[in-house]
Amino acid sequence: MRHGVYLPPFGELADPRVLADIAAEAESAGFDGVFVWDHVARADEPDLAVGDCWIALAAIAAATSRVLFGPRVTPLSRRRPQDVARETVALDLLSGGRLVLGVGLGSDATGEFSRLGEVDGGRERAALLDESLAVITALWSGETVHHHGPAYEVDGLRFLPTPVRQPRIPIWVAAQSVRRAPLRRAARYDGLCPEASPDRLADMLAVVAEYRGDLDGFDVAVAATEDRDAYERAGATWWLRSLPMGVSRAEALCAVRRGP
């Protein structure tokens, strides 16, 4: 099992310089990865400082040399896929091929979508997620892309440069249950970001294996604070030490300096 840290970019950690410092300490302490929440607002906590995940990822890429890193997870329904394609390739180049793209529907539990006029229905966000992934992976190829979908259009464009990481930047997909659609989506790509108990995770991976044929080379990145051994037995390949939302800079540094 590989080990990472999962950082909430809020409060003192809203500053990308702070996240970069924590990531560098995590790398020095022996962690294999650094992953960041991706939010633009916390409507239920109006006085909370919120950092930009993508600027933070650039700072982390520049401050480290070995760890994998990425968003866990970015809701693609609120992003333009062509922008994500450009940004992810830039981060991949900046880091020498260390980016992992974590994606999902996101949640409107705090009004982060609806209060900004974003699409907030689950089915609509799922459709945008699937179409965005199709566009992003096509643009990564470096080939001329013709995509004429219900939401997005690419009319004979070619995006260069291509990623360092081949055959593509790894994509990890979020899922919370044994519902078929999210797990079928995850099975098409490179990993799963589950929000589930160990027993439920084992059931989820059985469904993924059914779609893929096996789980060879498939990453399973659990972000939690307990039951590491149980998650490993269930099939997790990554254990992300999840730091609490209100963690201070000093507390975060202390946590990562203890090592995996």
Rank of each mutant, 00 (worst) to 15 (best):
R2G: 11
H3Y: 13
V5G: 12
L7W: 00
G11F: 10
G11V: 07
E12N: 01
E12G: 00
P16L: 05
V18G: 00
V18C: 00
V18S: 00
A29R: 14
V34C: 07
F35C: 00
A43R: 11
D44M: 14
L48H: 04
A49W: 01
V50D: 11
C53H: 00
W54T: 00
W54P: 00
A56F: 01
A58T: 02
A59F: 11
A63E: 04
T64E: 04
V67P: 01
L68M: 09
G70N: 04
R72K: 12
R72Y: 15
V73P: 06
V73Q: 05
T74G: 03
R79N: 09
P81M: 13
Q82L: 14
R86I: 07
E87F: 02
V89F: 02
L91E: 05
D92A: 13
L93K: 12
G97W: 10
L99A: 11
L99M: 14
V100H: 08
V103H: 08
G104M: 09
G106V: 07
D108E: 01
T110V: 15
T110Y: 13
F113D: 12
F113C: 13
S114K: 10
S114N: 08
R115W: 09
G117K: 06
V119Q: 14
A126K: 02
A126G: 12
L129E: 05
S132V: 04
V135G: 05
I136G: 11
A138W: 02
W140R: 10
H146N: 12
H146C: 10
H147Y: 13
H148G: 10
G149N: 04
D155A: 14
L160G: 09
P161N: 03
T162P: 08
V164A: 12
I169R: 06
P170R: 02
W172V: 07
V178M: 10
R184P: 03
A186M: 03
A186L: 03
G191D: 12
G191T: 06
L192F: 07
C193I: 15
A196D: 09
S197G: 08
R200Q: 15
L201V: 04
A202M: 07
M204T: 13
Y211P: 05
R212Y: 02
L215A: 07
G217S: 06
D219K: 07
V220T: 04
V220C: 01
V222N: 12
A223G: 10
E226T: 15
A230T: 06
R233F: 09
R233C: 09
A236I: 09
T237L: 10
W238F: 10
W238H: 11
S242C: 07
P244V: 00
V247K: 00
S248M: 02
R249Y: 05
E251F: 00
A252H: 00
R257D: 09
